[in-house]
């Protein structure tokens, strides 16, 4: 099946792709965008989180043929030179340990703040609990979300 995707603003026209290949593997193995990570493949860990039209989704669960909007991956959110405010908060709080879950955590947090600019503690718990961190960086994730929220609401 012919699949057209917009990823981080770039158009990709793939002439012949299985429509059931998960978006995660299209991004990683077909388009070479390895920011989204494979952790479980069954919507349990959130490492693969990307945005479709600004909303966090688990890319391991979205078949390539069903992508309904523009895709943004962590690479499209910000860069080391020009980090998104959520990424800047992640850097200043030094959230990452192994860092493998953090692409997904950051995409999830960015989506939360786009929808709920001043989240309560329980908003944060609700939004972020689908993202596993095996290293246990949860306390700093909570702090960084709050820092990013404060910064974004000032902008």
């Amino acid at each position: 099946m012919r699949v057209k995707l917009t990823v981080n603003g770039a158009e990709h026209d793939m002439q012949d792709l299985e429509p059931d290949m998960p978006l995660l593997w299209v991004l990683r193995d077909e388009l070479g965008l390895t920011g989204p990570k494979y952790g479980c493949g069954i919507a349990q860990c959130g490492a693969c989180t990307v945005h479709i039209d600004g909303v966090a989704v688990r890319s391991c669960q979205v078949p390539a043929g069903d992508v309904w909007g523009a895709v943004t991956t962590i690479e499209g959110l910000g860069t080391p030179e020009a980090p998104h405010p959520v990424q800047a908060a992640w850097i200043s709080h030094q959230v990452a340990q192994c860092g493998y879950c953090q692409s997904g955590q950051i995409m999830q947090a960015a989506s939360l703040l786009a929808e709920t600019p001043t989240p309560s503690d329980s908003d944060i718990d609700d939004a972020m609990s689908g993202n596993l961190c095996r290293c246990g960086t949860y306390p700093r994730i909570r702090e960084a979300v709050k820092t990013a929220a404060a910064k974004l609401s000032k902008e």
Partner: peptide, 16 residues
Amino acid sequence: RVDIPAKSTGTQAYGI
């Protein structure tokens, strides 16, 4: 930590 910026921007390359 020297690895934090890359790990916060999806640019840290792991084995995978």
